[in-house]
Design a protein around this nucleic acid. Structure first.
Lengths: 141, 141
DNA sequence: TCCTAAATAGGAATATATCTTATTTAAAAA
DNA sequence: TTTTTAAATAAGATATATTCCTATTTAGGA
């Protein structure tokens, strides 16, 4: 997010509103991985009457234009895993289907440098994200 | 989940209730990655008066004893990522902190066999799960 | 069989996210 | 610059997921 927010919005055909500019600025300045609520708390300082809806709408908008990303594609409801065998997942970003995959080679790769300073790693989890067969077929029609 | 549910419960010191036995059975029979609601719909056939609370409580209980796992550790609220550079995450399973990590070696590993039948993979995402430095320090005290 | 702590049902409460509608505003057109 | 209009916003209602509260029931030990 280097360029001026105003230019970025114009490039992708978005109206330039003060709320959007401010949310953009907040996101750029906020390290960590904010939730909508965090953004809301911050922007309220400048726009005390801003609504939650505007924040959510703007975050969606930014996401749809690739300016930000959701950390997970399955944040709507908690899903449980009954397969206790070590495995990873293929997740369809369209229909949210989850398919188990085995991928032992993952465990062989050395940790990236510096991770030991972050904490104690207890597990490695890999998610292959894409479009599942069913959704690809529907697309064709 | 091979053993008799009754024995498993006793081993880990849980009371054996009809609701728990049934939920356990449902989980074992249900492939896919059910949400609490899915389990609720199924168990209602046999226990029409069961409450949502019992389902949630039982799922938590099973999770705490390692009988099932949540697919994600961050399912409570949507978190956004403002770092558009390709990266992965270290996630603290205790405080839910997310820390960006770079790990290019991941891209070099060949896909596991059979993935091409599942759909089109568009991205690989890795999550290192563990306990962060802050939580480890608190633990010591 | 009795007793007690634990589990449950039912509904209330909370949290997150989206929708509805009247009002305001950005920005294109005049 | 002024006018026009579709898009954006605020406010609150609504939807959905999850947890909490409390009276009642029950598992399992005494």
């Amino acid at each position: 997010m280097e360029k001026d927010a105003r230019d970025i919005f114009k490039e992708i055909g978005l109206r330039v509103t003060p709320q959007r500019l401010e949310i953009f600025k907040i996101l750029a300045s906020m390290h960590g991985h904010p939730a909508a609520e965090d953004v809301f708390e911050r922007i309220r300082r400048r726009f005390p009457s801003i609504s939650f809806d505007t924040v959510y709408r703007t975050l969606s908008l930014f996401e749809n234009h690739g300016l930000i990303k959701k950390v997970h594609h399955l944040a709507d409801k908690t899903r449980y895993d009954t397969n206790l065998k070590r495995h990873h997942h293929f997740v369809c970003i369209r229909c949210k289907k989850i398919i188990d995959i085995e991928w032992d080679e993952i465990d062989g790769i050395p940790m990236p440098k510096g991770v030991e300073n972050l904490g104690r790693v207890e597990d490695r989890y890999v998610e292959l994200r894409g479009i599942c067969k069913d959704c690809l077929n529907e697309e064709e029609e």
